[in-house]
Amino acid sequence: MMLEALLLRAGPNATLVTLAALTLGFAAGVVGAFLFLRKRALVSDAIAHATLPGVGLAFLAMVALGGDGRLLAGLLLGAGLSALLGLGALQLLTRHTRLPEDAAIGAVLSVFYGLGIVILTLIQGLNTGHQAGLESFLLGSTAGMLRADALLIAGGGAVALALVGLMRRPLTMVAFDPGYATVMGLRPRLYDLALMVLTLGVVLIGLRVVGLILIVALLITPAVAARMWTDRVGVMALVAGAIGGAAGYLGAAVSAAVPGVPTGPVIVVLAFAGFVLSALFAPRRGLVVRLLQTRALRRRMRAA
């Protein structure tokens, strides 16, 4: 079963889900690379946790309108609106209080997450009969994913990738030297906003597969691993995409083969394995090469 899933032979639906996870992982890696370079990694965690109240409220709204309540596009719309509120709250806290950004992130993250859990618990008590599956937004699950869901995820990932490709130069210049970028006529605020929107997009399409608790790891781990391999932004973004994509693809295959395993944690553990391999074996920046260099240097000093 595992081999079949890996070779995309586990049936058309499973194949589509695996490809969606691959696209998501690739998009998360590439967007995460720029997020990491702009030093905004933690903001993505606040965005992710701030989606939860929106998921619950969107479910309730859809049920109240007589719908199924589990329509992914509807849930993601609610999640997106709620995350935008979270981002707004973060902006207010950092601009108009003396809270440093990390404290503001912690506050927004925990309040929104707590509110979301309260709403989900209330929903569990309702008798709609359709609420099963909302918990999968916490840790992600590819089990029972619909064809339309997979297409939405893959399509969203492709759009995010195209947008980053379009904005790669200004995003790089703003992250490296915002003052100089401004003098060159770029507006750092505009590109920071674009980066936040891209991050929100990746978080949303990642909710179903990886879940809101761990999506931050899929954004950041591949970027940190990729930094080990290269001194070029473009190469780093592509390597991060490759690591994220591989983790998504393998994780979805494993979770298809082993029922009951939540997909998100598997994907994140695989991405972390990519980081460990990079930290150990990358040329120049890797631990092994640096140890060998130090030993060679010591030997030469002793011989001299």
Partner: peptide, 30 residues
Amino acid sequence: YVPQRASVDWDFPVRAVDVVQMGLYRSLGL
């Protein structure tokens, strides 16, 4: 404009030639 050196992230993955090419941005565009 040549800013103060302190305003830059030194661990950023760019090489000297990449930094210089940033000066060509206005002739390259998006």
